[in-house]
Nucleic acid binder design. Structure first.
Lengths: 347, 347
DNA sequence: CTGAAAGCGCTTACAG
DNA sequence: CTGAAAGCGCTTACAG
């Protein structure tokens, strides 16, 4: 009767090395490496495969990723560079990335101050980790050029930077136009636009597409250059300061570059006793989970955050594995979700 | 006149090694290592320090972290293990960690399925990275035992597990009691509690403290074992199913283990045409950014997310640097924020 | 199919 | 103060 292999045991303090496995199995460390990495076909005899597997199980051996990385020249780390993670939208992107990357790669987050991008120094530090690949969210061109990375690289939400690397983008313009059409259709003639301070390309796209469609539909847009950080409180203050002017100008709707800004507007509107949507319609972008919950619900351009991360992860994975990308440029759809903040009939 | 050292240049494809720096400076790689790591005092002559610095600047040398990690036996990676990052609360914790860790350490996120904890396999993979330290958020005892880690380890939000490792905890019980007192003081006599399915210790604490104080104040609590995942939609559905029964029982307030649950209740209450807080008071825990914005604003127990991450990072850093922890156990305050969802007078 | 050996880039006793 | 050398744990030609 065969003995069932005992479950692997942790031996705190004693790191199990390939040499120990080799000794136990009576083979060389080269053979252990081959078996541990599944590169045995035609290279290791069945007997040795079995013996090594057994020894690995008994000792609880795991390939040391530092030694392995040094020998291979790359690590199993995928670095996700992003300017802002304090956004629920981003948490979903991360979830998508994790999902598509699987357990072969480890996700390392490179985050700097809100809205700031890492520069030369940070980039060096990142590359010193010998990452298997890089995922860069909402970069500017300068950053990508600083990066001048040679390894696998995929951009997320980087409209206009398709020449630098394979990218996964969001068709925010489509949703923006839908939003303009919706407001025009609801009878608004004069609206205001509240933008994000970070001059990320996606925000330019959102604004431009909205302004263009608004103009085409005969809506006037208050040009006030009102921009704030992506923060409820900051947006509330900015709106409070701008509202008297807007009100005099006859503004009946405010469109915000993100839902977070819109929450600030909703908050301030409540404080000011403004009825939404009767006296003021409010809309945003991102369709954060709370937009369905606020009262009134927030009309918003839905962006597929998790698919964005998942697709980017898939593309990167293909790149890392040396596969040809069928479509180096992907664009995911956006669409307008109408709720009570712009429409009395909706929730 | 001295020539100003030229700014370092990226040479794509050409990795600059210590050997190259050594050759240029006319010293050994040992000396380069000493200089690059700032361990020169009393060990390297001033002249050599200057020469090496110059060569480093000219070549744009950065210590390869893989080689370095292998030689040292540890990497500069700090692993943050967490069961759920799709929570804005968690984004703040991460921000706090990043802030206190500074740029000497890289933050690697280890996330599994929502609510799930990594087990033996994942742990091995994590440890194979030779992390400088581990930060574990909201673990269960089983996980910590699986971990049986030898290196620096700090627990976050791990009440009851103080024996395993230095921890930073939140005094959620205090806020829970305040909440019970507030509701009792507002005249509620029968309330319901909606819990999270993940049996994390913090949720037990929240519930137990609330139930105890509620009992002490003469409020009856519906014992329905209503639990859902931390998801607005799931909470809405669960509430919809439970409400008829609760209503018959005379429930006038629902307390939720997280604000996210509470958003679901608010949402469903709106659909059902329930007036909040007149017919139903609602409250949660976490004080997410959107709780100040919803309409009515959500009464919530505020938990200091960013300080939680920051303190944990500080403690870990001390551990890594071999310093003695002045206070291995820290507890951060929670406090009730009363808003319109429980109080007509508030916003 | 197999193993001895070189090499990945660095750090650290050690001898001088 | 300095450098030659060993060693960290692994992978991969290479010779057999």
């Amino acid at each position: 009767m065969e003995t069932v292999p005992r479950p692997q045991q942790h031996r705190p303090g004693k790191r199990v090395t390939a040499a120990m496995v080799a000794a136990r199995a009576g083979v060389s460390t080269a053979t252990v490496s081959l078996v541990a990495n599944g590169k045995t076909s035609g290279r290791v005899s069945e007997g040795n495969v079995a013996r090594v597997r057994q020894a690995i199980a008994e000792l609880g051996y795991v390939v040391d990723s530092v030694g392995s990385s040094l020998a291979r020249g790359v690590s199993s780390i995928v670095v996700l560079v992003a300017p802002d993670i304090s956004n629920p939208f981003f948490a979903k992107v991360i979830a998508g990335v994790r999902e598509s990357l699987g357990s072969d790669f480890q996700l390392l987050l490179s985050v700097t101050e809100a809205g700031e991008f890492p520069r030369a120094d940070d980039i060096r530090r990142i590359l010193a980790l010998r990452p298997a690949g890089l995922l860069v969210d909402a970069p500017d061109a300068e950053f990508i050029e600083d990066l001048s990375s040679t390894g696998p690289l995929v951009l997320l939400d980087a409209p206009g930077l398709e020449d630098y690397a394979p990218s996964v983008n969001l068709d925010v313009a489509h949703g923006a136009r839908e939003l303009a059409a919706h407001l025009a259709g609801s009878g608004h003639r004069r609206v205001a636009y509240m933008d994000s301070v970070t001059g990320t390309a996606t925000f330019e796209l959102r604004r431009e597409a909205f302004l263009e469609e608004a103009a085409a539909r005969g809506m006037a847009v208050e040009q006030s250059d009102l921009t704030t950080t992506i923060d409820v409180g900051a947006a509330a203050e900015a709106f409070a300061a701008a509202w008297p002017r807007w009100q005099r100008a006859g503004v009946t709707a405010v469109v915000c570059a993100t839902d977070t800004h819109a929450y600030g507007v909703l908050q301030e509107a409540r404080v000011a006793g403004l009825r939404v949507p009767e006296e003021l319609a409010v809309a945003g972008f991102d369709d954060l989970p709370y937009s369905a919950t606020s009262s009134p619900g927030l009309t918003s351009v839905h962006l597929p955050a998790e698919p964005l991360g998942a697709k980017a992860g898939e593309q990167l994975r293909a790149l890392i594995e040396g596969r040809e990308l069928e479509q180096p440029q992907l664009t995911l759809e956006s669409s307008l979700i109408v709720r009570g903040s712009t429409n009395r009939a909706a929730v």
